[in-house]
Structure formats: structure tokens, C-alpha cells
């Protein structure tokens, strides 16, 4: 929009890449860190963020802000697309009470891959609710633990109650090319959205 008047300082400095990011969300133990590690140029790094008391207070409805703090771990990796473009992947647990952190993660993200273990579908509900609410392009990636799915993708789509516009793909979090293909489906959705076309 106002790009013409105010040139992006990053573009005028070729040594500093434009950072873009994809969020990898889902419940605990569904394969988020594995997904990030499979595609990243570097071994996944971990950082911690401390939840504020206010954030706890919002979550614990009815419970007045307690003097406790919770530390949330977040992993990330990156893929250097070229010298001027760097893709970051942020993997973060999908509890609804971590919403404050998702705002930072999701702002300006190209999209989100919601990783699902077909044995524990309800673990991903907070993530799906969040991305539906914020309007960030997302797809559901069903991580095929042991090479098998306990449910067909159509059953999973039905159980998750997501629109037909949202792609549901099967992938293997341990396989680089499989993660790549899941991300390409997500980026196709994001591209359609950016072009103003109906997705799917």
C-alpha cells in the first residue's frame, strides 16, 4: 500500500534479509519440533517466554491473578531462501492460555501448519479455533505416526469441523520432503489468499 512512498529499509540493505515466518502449532507431543527440525537449515533452537500474571488471570476465569508464572518453550528453525529472504518456522504448543504468545507469532506470518496426531484430535482444537478467529491462512497436517493413520482424512476433517476450504494433508514430520510438501500446500493457500482468490 504505502510501499512506494516509504521504501522498506530491509530492501535497501541487501545484507539484512527480509524475515518471513510460518507457525507450526498443535498439542504437546504431536511432532512440532520434529517438523521444524526436518526442514530447518539449523538444528532447532529453543527459547522460553514467561507468561505474565495478567495472561494467567485471563485464562483462569474466575481465579484472580495468582502470583504464579509459567514458562512456555518455543522451538524454531529457519530456511535461507536466498540472501535477501529468510523463512523462520516457529513451533509452539497449542494451549488456549498461550494465546498472548500466538499474537506475536501469528502477526505477519505467511500462515500456520496445525500438526495433528490422529489419535488425539482434540489437542489441536485451540490452535484451529485461534487461526479461524484471526483469519491467518492455515492447513491441517496429520502426522502419520508409525506410517499409519487411525482415521481417514475425510473423517478427520469431519471431526475437526473445518470448512472444505481448509486443506487437510497427511505428512510425516520426520521426512524433509514430506514437511516441504505440507508447507507448499500451506503456501499455495496463502498465495490464493494474497491474490484475492477463493482458496482451494
Amino acid at each position: 500500500m504505502d510501499l512506494a512512498q516509504s521504501p522498506d529499509p530491509i530492501r535497501s540493505r541487501p545484507s539484512v534479509p527480509l524475515p518471513v515466518k510460518i507457525v507450526v502449532a498443535g498439542g504437546f507431543g504431536v511432532g512440532k519440533t520434529t517438523t521444524v527440525g526436518a526442514i530447518s537449515d539449523i538444528a532447532p533452537l529453543t527459547t522460553e517466554a514467561e507468561m505474565t500474571e495478567a495472561a494467567l488471570g485471563i485464562d483462569n476465569l474466575g481465579v484472580e491473578s495468582q502470583k504464579t508464572t509459567t514458562t512456555v518453550a518455543m522451538d524454531f528453525g529457519c530456511v535461507t531462501i536466498d540472501q535477501s529472504l529468510k523463512l523462520y518456522l516457529f513451533g509452539t504448543p497449542g494451549q488456549s492460555r498461550f494465546g498472548f504468545m500466538w499474537d506475536d507469532l501469528a502477526h505477519g506470518a505467511l500462515g500456520a501448519l496445525v500438526v495433528v496426531d490422529s489419535n488425539r484430535l482434540d489437542d489441536c482444537y485451540p490452535a484451529i479455533d485461534y487461526f479461524e478467529h484471526t483469519g491467518l491462512p492455515f492447513i491441517v497436517g496429520v502426522n502419520a505416526f508409525h506410517g499409519q493413520l487411525t482415521h481417514e482424512l475425510t473423517e478427520i476433517r469431519w471431526a475437526l469441523a473445518i470448512s472444505d476450504q481448509i486443506p487437510v494433508v497427511r505428512f510425516d514430520a520426520r521426512e524433509r520432503t514430506s514437511v516441504r510438501d505440507a508447507l507448499l500446500v500451506l503456501l499455495g493457500t496463502a498465495l490464493n489468499r494474497a491474490l484475492g482468490e477463493p482458496s482451494g
Binding site: 510501499l3 516509504s6 530491509i10 518471513v20 536466498d82 529472504l85 505467511l110 507448499l184 499455495g188 496463502a190
Partner: peptide, 22 residues
Amino acid sequence: HVRNSADPSTPDVIQRVIDGLS
């Protein structure tokens, strides 16, 4: 290096990421 444009999700940028990942 704060970005001026709020949303980097332009078709051009997304296409470059697609090409890079492919």
C-alpha cells in the same frame, strides 16, 4: 530492522518462498 509494511504476505514474497522450498 522494523518493517514498514505491516503484512509481508504479498504474492511476490510468497512465490519466492514457494520457489525456494520447491
